[in-house]
Design a protein around this nucleic acid. Structure first.
Length: 567
RNA sequence: CGGGGUGUGGCGCAGCCUGGUUAGCGUGCUACCUUGGGGUGGUAGAGGUCGCGGGUUCAAAUCCCGCCACUCCGACCA
């Protein structure tokens, strides 16, 4: 491609509202442009990167025996009503009617469509297993799109669905998909972790997320510093924390006057006791399909409530904050809540099981109880609801856990029969009995990967594309096109590289050197070739975008050297 | 969904509080000259329904009301 002819509108200025590097550089580099909130156009360079990611995903999936299909983007409401998700999915589902008043939605995910496609067509265990996928647009009317391609409303996703005769075969496929996903993200050149995850609203028995490690990630993940344990904090476990010394000693179980002291910090200071020995209460309102109720969660003062775990522990659809007024109306004393004598539902953290010698709220304003003993509480009340924190101990090997941030780019689920049963998608097994398919579902955020790659690979000058997905591999900069010698050699090298099958751009614009090298750095081609004043001595300069190192090479050797840099 | 902010040539902004000539600056764009290894300098140009609708007024980018869009913080996020 000749840059003099290319549609690559780069800008010197940072777009007004972009905060993250990937957003800034993708817009400034002329890869994407915004159309509306959470909706982007892909320009020629962005489209090339997207297609490369797409091609890698496709290649590895096909190798793993998956088959690509393409489902309609516009899907009939009836399918959503059938699965029961039409109402539950809520406002994220963009609904509209056609001229005949038929109701449709833009697909945010395609479980329903895929089950509908397969049911009635795959009817025997002999046709299983089957793994179908598509790489297609998705639309979710997010309440708050942000960060450019990282959280758009319209995005490109690979979504795959597998169908099996039994659980064991589904697990086999799940493991195969994990290995396949690892290959995909490794090929793209990303530093990522496969982490244990919460299954969330999609359901199923197990799931793993693939996280690209980046400071700007919206997810927090817990990683063991010794073994390969890694989990999203929403699902992370830990070994029982060690009790700090010295443990406080209380001769009696009795109220203690603590005027105005509510926070664990203040109390710890007041009693000179480590927060570990306090019982803290977190009140939430649990929302169910047909009711809502106040739940009190109790943890050690040194821990924080993990809301997803807490939500799962009480089987609620959602947990929301509860006001002090609501608490008082329920006969609860905010700031001084004890696990004793509560009328509402209570849940205690696993780590409090059998704990004694604690300080907790007094169920009375300005009083706490010292010498509390929880060893008589019913086992049923305990659940793992604490958030794993920096320095906690790995549940597998006991080494120290480290927290880091990640961008979720893939998620695989052992789904089971949730959708197949609801939508009556069955096959006949060996005994001739009808059974619902056992399913798995697997997703990759293809357009999000484009942004994630930049979040992880950039410097203060622009993008540094991994070679596997760079829009072009080489940028030949002709320093001054008025110098016919430079122009000629540039053209010659351009042709030679194309003959070698290298994707190359020729910067033959009538600009000066400055803007050209700035664009090279901004766009982030892996290799730059500067054809400039060195040519008089028979030399050109090769630039490694990643290190920004330049080296002079004889012009006759340039081709060979470039090929080596790319290998 | 709750709370804030913004909307003015392609892009980034000023002007608005205190209404009043031709709406200004930077950048980008066009032409010519200049320069030619890190966004060169100059001259001359093109380019704006001041988000939309209504109101107040002799007069509205500016004041008032309504709407829309975008955005930030939070909630939410298969």
């Amino acid at each position: 491609m000749r840059l003099s002819r290319a549609f690559v509108p780069t800008t010197k200025e940072t777009p007004k509202d972009a905060v993250l590097p990937s957003h800034i550089y993708l817009v400034r580099g002329g890869f994407i442009s915004q159309v509306a909130s959470g909706i982007y156009n892909f320009l020629p360079l962005g489209k090339r990167v997207l297609d490369k990611v797409r091609a890698i995903v496709k290649e590895e999936l096909d190798k793993a025996g998956c088959q690509e299909v393409q489902l309609g983007f516009v899907t009939p409401c009836e399918l959503w009503q059938e699965s029961g998700r039409f109402g539950k999915y809520g406002k994220e589902l963009l609904r509209f009617k056609d001229r005949k008043e038929n109701c449709f939605v833009l697909g945010p995910t395609h479980e329903e469509m895929m089950v509908d496609l397969v049911r009635g067509r795959v009817t025997s265990y002999k046709q299983l297993p089957l793994n179908l996928y598509q790489i297609n647009l998705k639309f979710r009317d997010e309440a708050r799109p942000r960060f450019g391609l990282l959280r758009g409303r319209e995005f490109v996703m690979k979504d795959g669905y597998s169908f099996h005769a039994d659980e064991a075969d589904m697990k086999r496929e799940y493991d195969l998909m994990e290995r396949t996903y690892r290959k995909i993200f490794s090929r793209i050149g990303l530093d990522f972790r496969a982490v244990e995850a919460d299954v969330g609203a999609i359901g199923g028995s197990a799931s793993k997320e693939f996280m690209v490690l980046a400071k700007s990630g919206e997810d927090t993940i817990a990683i063991c510093t010794e073994c390969d344990y890694a989990a999203n904090v929403e699902a992370a476990k830990r070994q029982k924390p060690k009790a700090p010394e010295p443990a406080p000693e209380f001769s009696n179980f009795e109220p203690f006057y603590t005027p105005g002291l509510k926070s664990i910090e203040e109390l710890s200071e007041f009693f000179k006791v480590d927060p570990y020995y306090f019982v803290k209460a977190v009140a939430k309102k649990a929302i169910y399909d047909d009711e809502e109720k106040i739940v009190l969660f109790f943890l050690r003062g040194s821990d924080e409530l993990q809301e997803i775990k807490a939500q799962n522990a009480v089987g609620a659809n959602e947990l929301v904050d509860v006001s002090e007024e609501e608490l008082e109306n329920a006969g609860i004393v905010p700031g001084f809540i004890a696990p004793y004598e509560q009328e509402c539902m209570i849940v205690l953290d696993e780590d409090l099981r059998g704990a004694k010698g604690l300080i907790c709220g007094g169920n009375r304003k300005d009083y706490h109880l010292i010498g509390a003993d929880l060893s008589h509480f019913d086992d049923a009340l305990f659940a793992d609801i604490a958030e794993v924190k920096e320095g906690d101990l790995c549940p597998r090997c006991g080494a120290v856990i480290h927290l880091t941030k990640g961008i979720e780019v893939g998620h695989i689920f052992q789904l089971g029969t949730r959708y197949s049963a609801a939508m009556k998608a069955t096959f006949l097994d060996k005994e001739g009995k009808a059974k619902p398919f056992v399913m798995g579902t697997y997703g990759i955020g293809v357009s999000r990967l484009v942004a994630a790659a930049i979040e992880q690979n950039h410097d203060d000058r622009g993008c540094i594309w991994p070679k596997a997905i760079a829009p072009y591999m080489v940028d030949i900069i002709i320093s001054n096109i008025k110098e016919s010698e430079q122009l000629e050699f540039g053209e010659e090298l351009y042709e030679a590289l194309q003959k070698e099958g290298v994707e190359v751009v020729l910067d033959d614009r009538a600009d000066r050197f400055g803007p050209k090298i700035k664009d090279f750095e901004l766009i982030g081609y892996p290799v730059g070739v500067i054809v400039g004043k060195g040519l008089k001595e028979g030399k050109v300069q090769l630039v490694d975008r990643k290190t920004l190192e330049k080296k002079d090479v004889a012009k006759e050797e340039a081709l060979q050297e470039i090929l080596e840099m790319l290998s």
